[in-house]
Structures are given as structure tokens and as C-alpha cells.
């Protein structure tokens, strides 16, 4: 149909119209150069660490101290863009997670990628609202290490996505002698 239209306009001899039609034709053609939609088979590690992330969230929400100890190193810390030099340590992170239980229970990890670095594994993912999955909330990078055969989370780097995200997740309250975060 496009080629037929071009022929008609070529015969009509209207230059401006030709340019417009060519622009439309090129717009259509550019759609054909987009990356193809695909359905992938997730890696074994994406499945494994996806389950570990889920287990950790469940352990915090229950709460189950024994499971938490299994999955979280004693020196765990969380850093965010606003607390890059002042991370939230383990105990305060767990306390803050309990306060944020409603948010923690409502998010779902998506778009997970897992890179095996040998002694550690880096998992990155986007937390979305479980009920409104078009809404990305946080981008997370987790560093897991192998502790005598079982995996433990050692570092979490978390940043908000967009203005509609909750202001924080599992972040300790700022003390009075600290500068207020500018959000």
C-alpha cells in the first residue's frame, strides 16, 4: 500500500506531499529495526537468587531470626544515593524493614540479572509494586557471598526510581546531628 501511494504521488508531481509521505514511510520502516520481542529461558542463577531474595523478605516479615541469620551476613549494610557515606548497618536495617513491612510485602523483584564473580555473586533487579507492575519503585544491587556452602547477603545498594516511589525502604531514620536528606 505504501509503495502504491508513493507511485500516485510521484505521478501527481507534488514535491511537498512526497516529502511527507516519505517521512511516513521512513517512520514505518524504523519500527522494523526495533529489537525483536522475545521470550527467554531464565538462568539457573536468576531462579536461585530470585528465591533467596524472596526467602529473605519472608524471613524479615515473619520475622524469623534464624532464617535471617542464615541469609544475612553479620556485617551486612545498605547504601543509598543519599547515604552513600553513611550506610544503614544490619540491626538498624532490620528494624527499618520491620517498620516498612507494608512496602516490603508489596514489592516484587523483576528484571533480575545475576553475575557470578566467583567468590561473590551480584544480583541486580527492579522492585515493582506487586499490584501495579508498570510502576518501578527501586533499583537494587545485592552482593551475595558464599559462606561455607550457603549464600548470604552482604551488601545492598538501593536507589529510588521516579517520584512516585516511597521515599525509602529499610533505611534507618536520620539522627538529629545528621544532615537531613534532601529528597
Amino acid at each position: 500500500m505504501i509503495l502504491q501511494s508513493l507511485t500516485v504521488f510521484a505521478r501527481s508531481g507534488t514535491g511537498a506531499s512526497m516529502v511527507l509521505v516519505l517521512a511516513l514511510f521512513m517512520a514505518q520502516s524504523s519500527q522494523a529495526t526495533e529489537e525483536p520481542r522475545k521470550v527467554p529461558t531464565t538462568t539457573r542463577l536468576v531462579k536461585l537468587y530470585g528465591e533467596l531474595e524472596s526467602n529473605l523478605s519472608m524471613a524479615i516479615l515473619e520475622p524469623d531470626p534464624s532464617k535471617i541469620d542464615d541469609l544475612l551476613t553479620q556485617d551486612f549494610e545498605q547504601r543509598t544515593p543519599l547515604t552513600a557515606d553513611n550506610p544503614t548497618p544490619r540491626a538498624e536495617w532490620l528494624a527499618a524493614c520491620s517498620k516498612d513491612a507494608k512496602i516490603l510485602g508489596a514489592v516484587l523483584p523483576t528484571k533480575m540479572a545475576v553475575r557470578d564473580l566467583g567468590s561473590s555473586v551480584v544480583a541486580s533487579f527492579v522492585m515493582v509494586d506487586r499490584n501495579h507492575q508498570k510502576q518501578p519503585l527501586f533499583f537494587v544491587i545485592d552482593v551475595w557471598i558464599d559462606q561455607q556452602g550457603h549464600q548470604q547477603l552482604k551488601n545492598r545498594f538501593l536507589s529510588r526510581i521516579g517520584d512516585r516511589s516511597p521515599p525509602s525502604l529499610c533505611e534507618r531514620p536520620f539522627k538529629s546531628n545528621e544532615a537531613s536528606p534532601q529528597r
Binding site: 529489537e35 522475545k38 521470550v39 527467554p40 529461558t41 531464565t42 538462568t43 539457573r44 533480575m112
Partner: peptide, 25 residues
């Protein structure tokens, strides 16, 4: 786009001028 980190394979499809081709990586 994520081989080894996100996926191990995938499938897709494309239209050619005369056919509709199914393919996988």
C-alpha cells in the same frame, strides 16, 4: 542483552516479505 546473566536462550518470530519465521537463540 543478557546471555548468562539473565537468560540462557530465548525464542521470537519475524515476518519476511513472504513468510512468518519462528526462531530461537
Amino acid at each position: 542483552t543478557g546471555f548468562c546473566n539473565t537468560y540462557c536462550g530465548w525464542h521470537s518470530h519475524m515476518k519476511t516479505p513472504t513468510s512468518h519465521i519462528k526462531y530461537a537463540f
